[in-house]
Design a protein around this nucleic acid. Structure first.
Lengths: 299, 299
DNA sequence: CTGAAAGCGCTAACAC
DNA sequence: GTGTTAGCGCTTTCAG
């Protein structure tokens, strides 16, 4: 049975309408819906039936106003131009939408650029959300700081230094350590690391994991082959040049954007992968997947 | 001057509080804020000043309830797994967030998978949005159909057959026609087309543009070199094999995912671009940018 | 078990 | 110009 796809076109039916129709009071209808308070089985059923037949849906906004809740949860996406290529945030968003829908919450998104949190402030001031999910964490994170100061409940995806804050993350440090260890154990002793912006906690952690793997293995790491803050292609190209002047077994990239550029650069310079040099990376983007370098699944 | 980052920690200040403090009525405060109705310059200023000092922000939800508005606009993202790699939707979302914030609206997002529009229905039923933006359009689009039937205001990004519907789009047909024409005019007479799922209007339009360019040029198009619905890598690889058996000047790809796979496949088979064959595509993904095939900027 | 009434924070006639 | 009143649609005491 199609339980009424069509919404009442004209005025939306309200709890008051039902009360009138059924000769009951608004509060009774409210109880029947929420299941709170005492209510007889009989009226309960009567109301439920009416609701089903007329395809009534309570107005969540009004409910929220009465309870001082919004039934909305804010999701903050980074608006940095280069992050748009990384599907990670979109994946997060999809996942969050899925789960919130189940809990009868909605997702309201907004963006922050670097330290510009005007949009976040707007969202909070407008009191449109009950809590917030930060989808990335920077060192000295402005959004986190703001939310904490204003006692807004929030969690961050990715780790941050402040242990008061609820955090949920992949263990990037451990992930990178494991990848590096595997490389080291399989005979690739001379490694280069190309890591992204060290303001991003994830990049710091991957760097730390890389270091730890060397430490654990008692092998010595060549610091001159560790390139941090590889924020643009020029830096990456330069790093690759330096790397290729040496006998390096494998380049470890902290993300796919870097990896992409590395592969392109190697290609331009007529090196082949993995014959001349191996390349490892995180994220596993579909574009790179076609290329099949030695890559490590993590996200 | 820092105009009060800190929100009143305890109970949020309301219009009633201001009225009481200033010895005015709630409606006067409301008028001062909205600027609607007659109000004296003096009280206007007094109220504005109080608001500034106490960093008062009206509760948008309550305002909305009183006006039967939500000040929210729904954005529907496709949840298909392979689309997550395409940054187009994320870009849309960023842009929408930017503009809505200016208009003091918020964005609530949800997803639809193929024809499964349960989440969209939820959003509408819950009356959480004043209108909807559909970020892609399929042939016989279920979300569009649903919204239209229920008289929900909406627009679609991308074109759809139904001309009642407000649509906003790049002219994909014209874009692809132009790209193809340029190729033809620059002496690349034998072209192959690899286009994606023909359920997506955008792919149909690009195909149509490709055809039109040939038609306009009076050159003849080789139908056996037109590959539609290239929905997976196996199909793409097979197409590339067929293409490389012939003397084709350039492969036109309807999107970067296809292009990516094409380049990878050519690479695997030891062809080089653009010496052995040229490759053109839309979207200009950052990953591909590193590769610099002949590509066409559109989005 | 059910109803009446007040209230969430704001707007919008309608008076004065 | 400003105040009064009645809602928006729902929840939640408090009676009975």
């Amino acid at each position: 049975m199609d339980d009424g796809d069509k919404i009442r076109a004209s005025k939306n039916i309200t709890i008051g309408d039902i009360a009138e129709e059924l000769g009951l009071s608004k509060s009774t209808i409210s109880r029947a819906i929420s299941g709170k308070g005492r209510i007889s089985e009989a009226t309960m059923l009567k109301v439920k039936e009416y609701i089903r037949v007329h395809n009534y849906k309570p107005n969540v906004i009004a409910k929220g106003l009465a309870q001082s809740k919004t039934y909305n949860i804010g999701v903050i996406l980074p608006a940095d131009a280069n992050l748009i290529e990384i599907p990670f945030f979109q994946s997060c968003l999809m996942g969050i939408c899925e789960e919130t829908a189940i809990q009868d919450y909605d997702v309201v998104v907004t963006t922050v650029k670097e330290d510009d949190i005007t949009f976040l402030k707007r969202l909070i001031h407008n009191q449109k959300v009950d809590g917030v999910i930060l989808t990335r964490s920077l060192v000295n994170d402005a959004p986190a700081k703001y939310l904490k100061e204003n006692d807004i409940p929030f969690v961050v995806i990715g780790s941050c230094e402040d242990n008061d804050i609820v955090q949920i993350d992949n263990n990037h440090l451990e992930g990178c350590r494991e990848l590096t260890s595997i490389l080291l154990m399989s005979g690739n002793h001379s490694l280069a690391l190309l890591a992204g912006n060290q303001n991003h906690i994830v990049n710091r952690n991957r760097y730390a994991g890389f270091v730890k793997a060397f430490h654990d293995s008692k092998l010595s790491m060549d610091n001159s082959m560790v390139f941090l803050d590889m924020n643009n292609n020029v830096l990456i190209d330069r790093a690759v040049n330096q790397i290729m002047e040496r006998h390096i077994d494998c380049i470890v990239c902290s993300d796919d954007l870097i990896c992409s550029r590395v592969l392109a650069k190697l290609n331009e310079d007529n090196y082949s992968v993995p014959e001349d040099i191996k390349v490892a990376s995180f994220y596993n983007n579909a574009h790179l997947e076609s290329y099949n370098p030695l890559s490590h699944h993590l996200v």
